[in-house]
Amino acid sequence: MTAAEQNSSEPARRTGRPGPAPLDSTAGRWLRKAWAVMSFTGFAVGALLSAVFVFPVLALLVRDPVRRREVTRATIGKLFGAFLRFMGLAGLSWDLKGLPVEGGAAGSASGCVIVANHPTLIDAVYLLWLFPGADCVVKAAHWRNPITAVAVRAAGYLPNDDDERLLEAAVERLQAGGTLVLFPQGTRTRPGEEPQFRRGAAVIAARAGADLLPVRITCEPPVLRKGDPWFLAPPRRPHFTLEALPRLSPERWTAEGERAGTVRLTERLSELLLEAVH
């Protein structure tokens, strides 16, 4: 065990608004509906404004592709942070345990694969805010969507249309010292279904010689799940907890063969990230 693996006693860092408070009056119900409408319009307006005024301007001003990638990612991180704080004003709250990792107990995240479970629509918003320089895999359709095309291209994220190229590119980026955010379950958890973790994250980490840094995400009450109508108002103010767990080194698992090792490592990740959903 390295020092980084013994960080579980780190006290929770509280950010955003204080914890959830029940709101069950009529006024509360209207506030929650307003929350749902505001979160969606806020995100949509923010995305639209940035798609028109921020990312194309950045792409014009910063010609060097490497520098452009850094600036775009940093900007996405800041915009996502601003969106979360905006939602904080409306009652969204969160606890960060062991995060952000820079300067925290888990050490630097550079060269790591950050793996998280995926309960809600805004998990990636949290992770790209907390790990602003990170690479992530983005649905290939976003390369052709006018709202997102400029940003995902300039940020140099990885499209998911060709598994072989994705695997290769992910390993290369990590070996060059990059950080990669992955959701091993691929898509959000469907209420009532046990998510199936796929082996890709463990394989990418093993081939790149990179550590896995699991981040467990819980949201209480659950909101923005797969299949939830967006206007569904939560029964209480939603409260997120994001917790960095001790790192895992794939080489400890793959001594007797990569395939069997990554299968077991993936099972372990699934246990770590899906346990204690309270």
Partner: peptide
């Protein structure tokens, strides 16, 4: 056989056949 295995199979088959089998 999972999706990662499928990628690895394509790579192996390319080494043997010399041709890229598209995903």
């Amino acid at each position: 056989i999972d999706s990662i295995d499928a990628v690895d199979m394509i790579v192996h088959m390319r080494e043997v056949t010399g041709e890229r089998i598209t995903p």
